[in-house]
Design a protein around this nucleic acid. Structure first.
Lengths: 209, 209
DNA sequence: CCTACCGATCGGTAGG
DNA sequence: CCTACCGATCGGTAGG
C-alpha cells in the first residue's frame, strides 16, 4: 500500500524529469534527491535503471491516454471524433501536460538509434498511438465522412508529423504561433478529404478537393 | 596543419556518434577511444565539452549544406527548386548521410528542454534551415508558380513537420514506407498550392484546389 | 599530443 | 525504506 504510493510518486516525478532531460538523462541520484529519499531506497522499487525507464514510459502512456485520448471518446464517432482527437493532441501541448513538451516525441527521437527494451517499448507505444489515430480515420471513412479513396495510414502519418512539428517549434523556439500553425494545417488536411453531409435527399455527395 | 586535420577527424566522428547517441551521450572518453587517442589530447582541441558540442553542430551544418542544400542551387528557381529541395531532404535520409538519421531532428528534440549555448546554437541552425525553406517557397510564389495567397511560413512549417515525421518512422520503426509517405505528402501539398504554367496566350491561370 | 591524476557522479550491491 | 559502500566513468586539470 504505502510502497505503492511511493512508487507512484517516483514514476510521476520521473515522467516530468524525463520529458525535459530525456530518459537517459534521468538519473537515479537526482530523482532520489528531488524526492528527498535515498538512492538505494528508490532503486529497490525497480531493480535496474532500465526497469525504471520502462515504468516511466508506462506512466507517461497512462497520462497520455487520460489527457488526450479518453476525453475524446464521448464525442460522436466519425469526422467529429477524428477532429476532436487532433485538437485534443494540440491542446495537450498547449496545456503543458508534460513540462518538456510531448514525452513520446522526445523519447522517440532520443532512443531511435539505441537498440534495446526501452527503444522497443517506445516503438510499441507510438505504434499504438498511430494505430488509434488510424482507427479514428478509418471509422470516419466508414461512416461516409471521408473520401473513400483515402489511405488511413497515410493520413495518420501526416497528422502525427504535424504534431511533432508543433512540438518542435513550440519547444525549441517557444514560438506561440507553432500550435496555431499545426491546428490550421490539421484542419485543412482533414477538410481536404472530408465529405460534407448532404442535407437534400437527392443531393449527390460533393466531390472532395 | 596537423592539428587541424586531427581536429577535423574528431568532429567528423563526433557528428556520427551524436546522431545516434545524442549530443549529451557523446562523451570525450568514448570519442577518444574510438579515435585511438588520449582523452586529454582530444580535450585540448576544445577546452570544454560544450565547445566540443558546438563544434559538432558546426560540422553537422556543413555536412547538411553540402548534402541537402548545395546540390539544389543548380536547379532553376521557383517551383522546380522548391520541389528539388524537398526531395533532396528526403533523399538525404534515404542515403543515410548521418548514421542515426537527421542530426538536427535528434538534437532539436534532445535540447529543447535544456537552456544554454548548445540549445541556442541548435535553435539558430534550425531557424536558418526553415528560413531557407521559406525563401524557396517565397521565390516560387514571386515567380508566379504558387498561389499568391500562400503563406510561406505556414508551408515551411508543414514541410519541415513532414520531414521530421519521416525521420521518426524510418528511424524508430525502420519502416521503409515512411520516406515514400513523406514524399507523397510533400508532393501533394506543393501541388495543392501550385499554379501550372499556362501554355495558351489567352489561357487564364487555373484555380488551385 | 601524452601520462597521471582530481572530485563528482554514475548504476548497482551488501546488509540490515 | 536506510547507511555504507563498490568499480567505472564522467568532465576537467597539472605538467610536460
Amino acid at each position: 500500500m504505502k510502497g505503492d504510493r511511493t512508487r507512484q510518486s517516483i514514476v510521476e516525478r520521473a515522467v516530468n524529469l524525463a520529458s525535459t532531460d530525456g530518459l537517459e538523462g534521468l538519473t537515479i541520484g537526482r530523482l532520489a534527491d528531488d524526492l528527498e529519499m535515498s538512492k538505494s531506497g528508490l532503486f529497490a522499487h525497480f531493480g535496474s535503471k532500465e526497469e525504471l525507464q520502462l515504468a516511466t514510459i508506462e506512466e507517461a502512456k497512462q497520462r497520455f491516454i487520460d489527457e488526450v485520448f479518453r476525453p475524446v471518446l464521448k464525442v460522436e464517432r466519425g469526422y467529429p471524433r477524428l477532429l476532436a482527437l487532433c485538437r485534443s493532441w494540440i491542446d495537450y501541448l498547449r496545456r503543458g501536460v508534460f513540462p518538456g513538451g510531448c514525452f513520446f516525441a522526445a523519447a522517440s527521437f532520443e532512443f531511435d538509434g539505441r537498440p534495446g527494451p526501452v527503444r522497443d517499448a517506445i516503438g510499441r507505444a507510438m505504434f499504438e498511438w498511430i494505430g488509434a489515430l488510424e482507427k479514428a480515420i478509418r471509422m470516419a471513412k466508414e461512416a461516409g465522412h471521408l473520401d473513400p479513396r483515402v489511405d488511413p495510414a497515410q493520413i495518420a502519418f501526416e497528422l502525427n508529423a504535424l504534431f511533432f512539428g508543433a512540438n518542435f517549434a513550440s519547444q525549441l523556439w517557444r514560438d506561440p504561433r507553432a500550435l496555431d500553425r499545426a491546428e490550421k494545417a490539421v484542419e485543412a488536411r482533414l477538410e481536404s478529404v472530408r465529405i460534407k453531409p448532404s442535407h437534400t435527399r437527392s443531393g449527390a455527395r460533393r466531390k472532395i478537393a
